[in-house]
């Protein structure tokens, strides 16, 4: 697995996190999307997991030749901010959804 640069794995993380956010919000807003996801694997959550995995490795593969910078702090901070923002967005969406506001 060392064929992947840290940079490519960081991009893979961004792709996986935001695919989960987009698919989650879209599926809750549009039942047709949830049905399509469910029909792909038998359950919408399993489909989201598989899509996130595929996007992670595809993105990492596409950017695998990109060289890492000497200082990885910016890349890692970017991944952590991305994960935190994605998680908070999902939480905020479900709070609003529970309150009937989304």
């Amino acid at each position: 697995m060392s064929r992947f640069s840290i940079c490519s794995l960081a991009y893979g993380c961004h792709a996986a996190f935001w695919s989960v956010v987009i698919l989650t919000v879209t599926a809750e807003r549009l039942p047709a999307v949830k049905n399509i996801l469910a029909s792909l694997s038998g359950h919408h959550w399993v489909s989201k997991s598989i899509i996130a995995l595929l996007l992670f490795f595809t993105t990492a593969f596409v950017f695998s030749r990109r060289n890492d910078p000497d200082d990885l702090s910016g890349l890692v901070k970017g991944v952590m901010v991305s994960a935190a923002m994605a998680a908070l967005l999902i939480l905020a969406f479900y709070v609003l959804h529970y309150l009937g506001m989304a």
Partner: peptide, 25 residues
């Protein structure tokens, strides 16, 4: 369920990717 489980089931998906990145680093 409506807030916490729905959030957990999706945010949990992030963890293996973060762990993989940490391991590679």
């Amino acid at each position: 369920h409506s807030i916490l489980m729905e959030t957990k089931e999706h945010v949990f998906i992030f963890l293996p990717f973060l762990a993989f990145l940490a391991h590679e680093m």
